[in-house]
Simulated scan of single mutants.
Amino acid sequence: MTHLVPRALPPGHRAEPGMGAWVRHSTRGANAVIRQGEPTEDGLVDVTFTLPADIPGHISVVGDFNHWDPYAHPMRRSQYGAHTAVIALPQGTSICFRYLAEGGLWLDDPDADARDEHGCIVHVPAAAGGKGKDRPGGAALNGHRSRAAAPRGNATT
C-alpha cells in the first residue's frame, strides 16, 4: 500500500505557498518503485523509477548523475497513470537523487538503498553480483558516486 504523508523540507528548500511538502512512503516489497534490469553488453543497467499516479503534475528524477537538471529525466505517465523514468547507469556505481515535482516540491523515495544529506542513494551492483534484482530498499552495496552538491532554494520545473 502506498500513501503520502507531510514532511518538512530540508533547510534552504521551500514549497509553493499552500502546496505543502510531501514525501512518499510505501510498505516495503508491496510495490517496488526502484527496479534494476539486466546489464547490457556495455555494462549499463536500466534503472526504472516509479511514483504513484496520485501525485499531481509533472515530476523529474534529478541527481548527481544529471547535474540536478530537472529537464534531463522527466517522468512520463504510464497507461495506468503512474510516473516512470528509466535511466541507464554504469554497473558498480551509486547515485544520489531526489524527485522534483511541480512548484519546486522535493520528494524522497523510502525505497532507496540509503540516504545522505543530499538525498536518496541507489546502488547499482558491480558485475560480480546482484544482476537483475528489484531494489525496494536492500542492503548497501559497494560503489562510488560523484559528490555534486544538491540544489539549494526553490526549484521550478
Rank of each mutant, 00 (worst) to 15 (best):
H67L: 07
G92Q: 05
C120Y: 02
R7S: 12
R28P: 15
G103Q: 05
A72Y: 00
I55L: 11
G130D: 07
E41W: 00
V86H: 02
P110Q: 08
T50F: 00
G18A: 08
V45K: 02
T48I: 09
H144I: 11
D111L: 08
P56Y: 05
F97R: 05
P110F: 07
H144G: 14
I55Y: 04
V61L: 08
R77W: 06
C96P: 05
R98E: 12
A85T: 03
D108C: 07
E41D: 15
L9M: 09
N142R: 10
E117G: 12
R14A: 13
F65N: 05
S26Q: 11
R98K: 09
E41R: 13
G129W: 11
E16L: 14
A149I: 03
R147Y: 05
G57I: 01
I87M: 07
D109S: 12
A114E: 13
W22L: 14
G20W: 04
L100N: 01
A88L: 03
A139Y: 00
G103W: 04
A149Q: 06
P136L: 09
A139E: 13
R28S: 13
Y80K: 10
T2E: 13
P151K: 02
P151E: 08
Y71A: 15
R145G: 11
P136I: 09
C96Y: 01
K133A: 15
N142C: 06
W68N: 02
L44G: 03
Q36K: 08
D109I: 04
I55R: 07
Y71E: 14
I87N: 07
Y99D: 04
F49N: 03
D46H: 09
L51T: 10
H58L: 09
